[in-house]
């Protein structure tokens, strides 16, 4: 029986600037099942990180969640008070930021920084509590494949891959149910990247963890995710299991995006990029936000917003009036 861990319903997050309102995330719906990974992909500025920050309730001051519900294990995170939310972070859901591995405090040992999180979150400031916390730090090092003897090392003594492992150790230290990882492998070399992806997969199956994996690199998603969500200009355009989206993707944006990744397999043909640039979200085009760049766009697309509906299966959702039509 598959249990839904995270359910995001009609989430809209807007940024209120002096003269304009930027619709960074607009009416987004998706779910993440227990023990599954959802890969969220799209060009920069499409709202991937804003969606994640909305779930964590960590938006910058100008950002406001104007609509929607976010259920984690049946509880609406948006109804929690600030204090309740603060307690939930790291214990219920944790977040690995983009470039987090460069955010270690250079004058504290890696172990101290992880212990700090555990002591704060488990409220164990007593002597025995601290001892317990350090035991947990060692365990968390083992989970991510780091030598537990290195908890007393400083961040500069770690390589890039090791720092990324340590960040994952920190995120896992309080046994969260959901892990949001924002571009966790982007700055890493191929072989280290593969190892970190493998590590995330292992942790996931051992702890039945739900993972939201944000990246702009579709190859990484193909490699490591069960489900895929494609975002464009603050809208969810397609969600489905990885195999369906990659092979039977129905939204023209999805298919054109997948096509724009050169591969080392198969023939090496010239790839034609998608023409134009993503729209200004302070002033998005009417109708479907992709229509100015879409080869299938018709009158309808310029006028009405396409609904986000089931397409081939109940799990495969697409927002397009021309879903599945051939692109010439």
């Amino acid at each position: 029986m598959i249990m839904v861990l995270l359910e995001v319903k009609n989430l809209s997050t807007h940024f209120f600037l002096k003269e304009s309102r930027v619709r960074a995330v607009d009416d987004v719906c998706f779910t993440i099942d227990q023990g599954k990974t959802l890969g969220v992909a799209g060009e920069s500025g499409c709202g991937k990180t804003t969606t994640a920050l909305s779930i964590m309730r960590m938006l910058p001051p100008a950002g406001k969640i104007v609509n929607g519900e976010i259920f984690l294990d049946g509880v609406d995170l948006l109804k929690k008070s600030k204090e309740e939310m603060r307690k939930a972070k790291w214990k219920e859901l944790s977040y690995v930021f983009q470039y987090a591995m460069n955010a270690f405090n250079p004058v504290m040992t890696v172990g101290e920084q992880i212990a700090e999180v555990i002591i704060e979150k488990e409220n164990s400031k007593s002597k025995s509590g601290k001892k317990e916390a350090w035991k947990k730090v060692k365990e968390s090092f083992e989970i991510v494949g780091l030598d537990p003897d290195r908890i007393k090392n400083y961040p500069h003594e770690f390589s890039g891959g090791m720092k990324q492992r340590a960040i994952i150790a920190m995120a896992m230290a309080c046994d969260p149910k959901l892990l949001i990882a924002d571009e966790p492998v982007t700055a890493l070399d191929v072989i280290v990247e593969k190892k970190i992806l493998k590590l995330l997969n292992e942790i996931q199956s051992n702890y039945n963890l739900g993972i939201m994996f944000i990246t702009h690199d579709l190859s990484v998603i193909a490699e490591s995710c069960d489900d895929v969500a494609i975002m464009y200009a603050g809208k969810m355009v397609e969600v489905g299991d990885a195999s369906t989206v990659f092979h039977k993707g129905a939204h023209p944006y999805t298919r054109m995006l997948i096509r724009s990744f050169p591969s080392i397999l198969g023939e090496c043909k010239r790839i034609e990029p998608i023409s134009g640039i993503p729209p200004d979200l302070a002033n998005p085009p009417p109708g479907c936000r992709f229509h100015p760049r879409c080869p299938l766009a018709t009158k309808e697309c310029r006028k009405d917003i396409p609904p986000f509906e089931p397409f081939s299966t109940s799990r495969h959702h697409v927002a397009c009036f021309h879903a599945g039509e051939t692109i010439l």
Partner: peptide, 19 residues
């Protein structure tokens, strides 16, 4: 170890230790 944009691609992997 290069990721490819195809979730169903079956490839033989060679794993190497360390960095």
């Amino acid at each position: 170890n290069i990721p490819v944009p195809d979730p169903d691609a079956k490839r033989e992997r060679i794993e190497i230790e360390g960095e």
